[in-house]
Simulated assay, not measured.
Amino acid sequence: MHGKVGDTFRVTLINDGTMNHSIDFHASKVSPQVQMRQIKPHESLVYEFKANYAGIWTYHCGADPMIHHMGNGMFGAVVIDPPGLDKVDKEFVFVQSELYLGPNGKEGDLKKMMAGTNDGVAFNGYYNQYVYSPIKVAPHSRIRVWVDNAAINEDLAFHTVGTIWDTAWKEGSYVPRKDNPDHGGMQTLDLQPTQGGFVEFTLDDPGAYTFVNHKMRDLSRGGAGQFIVGNPPTTGGH
Rank of each mutant, 00 (worst) to 15 (best):
H2W: 02
K4H: 12
V11N: 09
T12L: 13
T12E: 15
I14F: 07
N15W: 12
N15R: 14
M19E: 15
N20A: 15
H21I: 15
K29G: 02
S31G: 11
Q33G: 02
M36V: 00
Q38T: 05
Q38R: 01
K40S: 15
H42D: 10
S44V: 00
E48R: 12
K50S: 06
A51Q: 09
Y53C: 00
A54K: 05
Y59E: 01
G71L: 02
G73Y: 08
M74F: 07
V79P: 06
G84P: 07
L85S: 08
L85F: 08
L85N: 11
L85Q: 14
D86C: 00
K87H: 12
K87F: 01
D89H: 09
F92L: 12
E98V: 04
Y100D: 11
Y100Q: 11
G102F: 13
G102Y: 13
E107T: 09
K111C: 00
M114S: 12
G125C: 13
Y127N: 14
Q129F: 07
V131C: 05
Y132D: 11
V137G: 05
V137R: 06
V137K: 05
V137A: 04
A138P: 01
W146L: 06
V147R: 07
A150R: 10
E154I: 07
V161H: 10
I164E: 14
A168K: 06
S173A: 13
V175F: 10
R177K: 15
P181F: 03
L189F: 07
L189S: 02
D190P: 00
T194L: 06
G197V: 07
F198C: 04
E200R: 13
P206S: 09
A208C: 09
F211K: 06
N213A: 01
L219I: 00
G225K: 06
G225V: 05
F227R: 04
I228C: 01
N231Y: 02
N231M: 03
P232W: 02
G236A: 05
G236N: 08
G237M: 01
H238P: 05
H238T: 03
